[in-house]
Design a protein around this nucleic acid. Structure first.
Lengths: 118, 118
DNA sequence: CAATATTGAATAGACAGTCTACACAAACCG
DNA sequence: CGGTTTGTGTAGACTGTCTATTCAATATTG
């Protein structure tokens, strides 16, 4: 019996965009980012920690986010990430790339009128 | 000087959906499928042969398409692919998965009203 | 006939990014 | 004390796309 995931797998290449977009709402630490994504997507998307932390490290290495150790609400050490100016530009670029891709998919997927009936 | 691709890279996981959708319009061989995708997406998407043929083989192995050797219009040997009944169901499933993912992305990306101004 | 372009299929190997599955630590709570 | 929640992190498997290349048949042109 195979398990069927009710949640979607992330399409590769979208995670960084999602994280950057999430940080636009304000600085946050990893755990909070993951929860925010899940909540905002109405539980459709869930980011695994094995994807999240490597992604955050990549973003930091590229200078799109900056990080510092803080205390979370619950008093735990937490690495707080915030968007840099560079990250803001990157967010805009990736957002529009997503829009273009999404539009392209729409063009291909839309019913092309009287092609199905033959 | 880095080259910047005017075309988008495919998001991993979308190619099989695109191919199945293309074959819904009727049987076709690899080359024709690639051209159709590029044309239909208004040149936004381009499938490389190194992605296309492995994908077609995967689809065939899974029984979602069936293949046979034919002669193309230009008189060349060409492997003609057509959608199977199973492939039709798979297309529907993957299409709706795409819709869900796309919707989730929309939820995350949309301006969340007065979150940006702080 | 030879050279070249076009059509078409195919593979090898690099590579990126997500996943599963862990490990670890600190705080709080019964 | 032991369990749960919160939080960060890594290792390794895996999937699928990409680049780059090969091969072959046909058509065209000199």
């Amino acid at each position: 019996m195979q398990r069927q995931p009710s949640r979607l797998e992330l399409l590769q290449g979208t995670l960084e965009l999602i994280i950057l977009r999430t940080l636009l709402a304000g600085p946050a630490h990893g755990h909070a980012i993951a929860k925010h994504i899940q909540r905002t997507s109405e539980d459709l998307l869930q980011v695994e920690t094995g994807s999240l932390y490597p992604a955050l490290h990549r973003l930091e290495a590229k200078g799109w986010v900056a990080a510092s150790w803080e205390k979370s609400d619950k008093g735990k050490r937490a690495r707080c990430y915030r968007l840099t100016a560079l990250g803001r530009r990157q967010l805009a670029a990736e957002h529009s790339k997503w829009e273009a891709f999404s539009r392209a998919m729409g063009l291909i997927l839309k019913p092309a009128a009287q092609e199905e009936g033959r």
